[in-house]
Design a protein around this nucleic acid. Structure first.
Length: 747
DNA sequence: TACAGTCGGGG
DNA sequence: GTGTACGACTGTA
């Protein structure tokens, strides 16, 4: 009997075939089987440069063993228009990659286009079919795809996900801190505990489990840096060829090395990676931003970006939005440059100083306020790019239909849609639609968490897009378009402020895309509608009510109590939700004990209906604080709750003065556990020298060495941050000279 | 007091 | 696929 020639299901994986040069596909057939399919996939890339050099390239390519089809043609460059190029077509993605590698060495002076694109991206651009898409496929009896028809869209809100078989692999103890002893395997309702030693046994067991259960997804904790290196190195050293965790056993596992890199002003550590073929491996520890939006968010990003699941799970959203821009370019027939070559046009130093500013900040009016509404522009910068057609190729370009950018005085070409706005528009629309859908649901609805994760995943793609617009090494970036966005941002915020003042609001604070507006008696959502409508009318940008505060406190600088600091505040919304920014509880290096105390104080103060009830609430706060302090001095606070956790920003030898974190890292290094830049180090403050105790050192610390004096100081400081706006002096806090007293008449 | 090192921000 | 922000704040010398 011949196999069915038509199937329906979800596209799980897509990569260059290891043997014949084409693409391999894995389809999760809706009737159950996971099938491997293939399709020839010729790949074309382009070279441009001086005519004599292109001739030499032509002659060179004729001598190469890799067969190519060559053609002189013209293609559209985003910035310079039509370009004479040499089109080089190869039989498949493998040949293209090898040939391009040779050319970058032999003809490094030429410009290359469409030359380094992931196979999944090329396929999505041409055939619209994306990873995780539901589709119908027709094949030959040899499993070659004849047609692959999309029955899905990345922009629909309802996305039935494939019924994945997941195998979870959890080592204990945590491999980040200790060598694991056992591996907990969860699969198909089974729970199996495997000893990690000896490795030969573990390999044997896992091989059997993979064969029996055939999972689509291996979800690990530490699979990238620990489990797979442990298994694969053992197999390599002992020539155990039978173990292959791929579903496609023609392939060998793809391993990438660890690295530390700089992004968003800080060093990030990324461990080694292990990618599989035909099934996915996702390491929950190593997946970038995984904690923020989870698996659902990763799937959402795979569906819209054209990148594969394993890639997007480990990459930043920046890589995702870049991929989306490349998709747009490919579909519009615009060349995707291999290396960014667009030079920044010189602008005068004066213009630079005037325009090289970011968002507008209006310092807050210090202290406690009631009847305050917070309004935020929705995805402000991406909305601006879409609304004003700001794109690297439209900013600074004249034409029949232009608009002048505020502050910069540059024109924007409005006669054709820009590449970046075109990429962003469906993303913005989908995110807003998801948010509207979310607003109709309660948190307990079963789709709520999933929709929320997907909205967050889209949000991150939008957030990072702005950064890439001005990044000089980005493929589609140009600094003027970046400046145009912030200029429109400031202009829009100023218009919003004027609208608020015209409607008799008092502007308490403005921060880039948010406004805090006070008006006596403003208590309900409908009461805020006129100001929202007016701002939308005056700016053209969507703005939403973040919430109405019961009360909100803007905090002063610690250096000088008269000086307000932007974005350091806390408050409670009418529904009881807290919002905090800049205080200790928000910082990742604050010991959990201190953060929890701050939040507990806030919960006490959040219960009141109006400020006059605060004095009555304070005695309970003082009692609570005293209880916590007693727990500290009697050693009842678990040591984990006192841990400071800081990120190392450099190699240990590069420290001029050894910070507490660096001293803790030294201790770990001395025990053979070096910390790489970008990794976190956790430690306790202890008495005497060196003043810190690095967590994860062998053995347990002596609780008596904990520097309780230091923690007491930090405790009082954290409590005072919250209580100061309510008129409580530091001296009135437990063990202060005026303990229990507090000033009246502050309300 | 100077300066070196770390953090936040978006939800 | 990687913004070497920028300003507040803390700890050390």
């Amino acid at each position: 009997m011949s196999p069915p020639l038509e199937r329906r299901g979800w596209l799980l994986d897509l990569y260059p075939s290891p043997e014949e040069d084409g693409l391999t596909f894995w389809l999760l057939d809706e009737t159950g089987p996971r099938v491997r399919l293939h399709q020839p996939f010729p790949v074309t890339f382009y070279a441009s440069g001086p005519f004599p050099r292109l001739r030499e390239l032509w002659r060179f390519l004729r001598t190469q063993p890799i067969p190519v089809q060559l053609a002189r043609t013209q293609r559209q460059d985003l910035f310079v228009g039509l370009l004479d190029v040499l089109a080089i077509e190869t039989a498949g993605p493998n040949a293209q990659a090898r040939l391009f590698h040779t050319l970058t060495r032999t003809f490094p002076d030429l410009d290359y286009y469409d030359a380094d694109l992931p196979a999944s991206l090329r396929y999505t651009a041409i055939h619209q079919v994306f990873l995780l898409a539901y589709c119908r496929v027709h094949t030959t009896p040899e499993a070659q795809i004849t047609t692959l028809e999309l029955l899905d869209s990345p922009w629909t809100l309802e996305t039935p996900l494939p019924p994945l078989r997941v195998m979870t692999l959890t080592p204990t103890p945590d491999p980040r801190h200790h060598p694991p002893e056992t591996l907990l395997v969860q699969t198909g309702g089974h729970l199996i505990t495997l000893p990690v030693h000896p490795p030969a046994q573990l390999v044997l067991h896992l091989h059997a489990l993979l064969t029996k259960h055939d999972p689509d997804l291996l979800l690990t904790d530490g699979g990238d840096p620990w489990l797979f290196p442990y298994l694969l190195d053992h197999c390599q050293e002992n020539n155990l060829a039978y173990f292959n965790p791929n579903r496609d056993i023609r392939c060998t596992v793809l391993r990438r090395k660890e690295n530390s890199y700089f992004t968003y002003g800080q060093v990030v550590y990324r461990g080694a990676q292990t990618h599989l073929f035909g099934r996915w491996h996702i390491d929950r520890h190593n997946a970038m931003m995984f904690g923020d939006y989870g698996l659902e968010g990763v799937f959402e990003q795979a569906r819209v970006t054209g990148l594969s699941v394993q890639e997007i799970a480990r990459k930043s959203p920046g890589a995702g939005i870049t991929a989306m821009q490349m998709l747009t370019a490919l579909r519009k027939g615009i060349l995707v440059p291999y290396q960014k070559q667009q030079a920044e046009r010189p602008i005068s130093a004066r213009t630079l100083i005037r325009t090289d500013r970011g968002g507008l900040v209006y310092p807050p009016i210090l202290g406690l306020h009631t009847d305050v509404a917070e309004l935020d522009f929705v995805s402000m910068y991406p909305s601006i790019m879409a609304h004003f057609n700001l794109s690297p190729e439209t900013v600074g370009v004249g034409g029949p239909h232009t608009e002048t950018i505020p502050e910069l005085g540059l024109p924007v070409d409005l006669s054709r849609p820009g590449l970046v706005p075109e990429t962003l528009r469906p993303l913005l629309e989908k995110r807003i639609a998801l948010k509207m859908l979310l607003a109709t649901l309660s948190r307990r609805d079963c789709e709520y968490a999933s929709l929320k994760a997907r909205a967050a995943a889209l949000k991150w793609l939008l957030v990072v897009c702005f950064g890439y617009l001005g990044y000089k090494n980005a493929r589609f970036g140009r600094i003027e378009s970046h400046e145009a966005v912030t200029a429109y941002g400031r202009e829009s915020l100023m218009r919003a402020k004027e609208a608020a003042e015209d409607l008799d609001y008092r502007v308490l604070h403005m921060y880039v895309d948010g406004l805090w507006l006070a008006k006596p008696g403003i208590k309900t959502i409908p009461a805020c509608q006129p100001i929202l409508d007016e701002i939308l009318h005056r700016t053209g940008l969507p703005i939403a009510l973040e919430g109405i505060y019961k009360w909100v406190a803007f905090l002063p600088s610690r250096m000088d109590a008269r000086v307000p600091v932007a974005n350091r505040y806390f408050g409670v919304f009418q529904n009881g939700d807290l919002k905090t920014r800049g205080i200790e509880a928000r910082r990742h290096d604050t010991p959990p004990w201190l953060g929890e105390v701050q939040i507990e104080i806030l919960h006490h103060l959040a219960r009141v209906d109006n400020l006059s009830q605060i004095p009555a609430a304070l005695p309970a706060v003082f009692t609570m604080l005293q209880t916590h302090l007693r727990q500290l001095t009697t050693g009842c606070v678990p040591l984990e709750k006192l841990l400071v956790s800081q990120t190392l920003s450099r190699e240990l030898d590069a420290y001029k003065t050894p910070s507490p974190a660096a001293r803790a890292a030294r201790q770990l290094e001395a025990h053979g556990k070096p910390i790489r830049p970008g990794q976190r180090v956790r430690f306790l403050y202890t008495r005497g020298t060196p003043g810190v105790y690095a967590w994860d050192e062998p053995g347990a610390p002596d609780p008596r060495t904990v520097d309780t004096g230091r923690y007491k100081e930090l405790f009082v400081r954290a409590a005072h941050t919250i209580l100061a706006p309510f008129g409580v002096e530091e001296e009135s806090l437990p063990y202060g000279k005026k303990y229990g007293q507090f000033a009246h008449g502050w309300a």
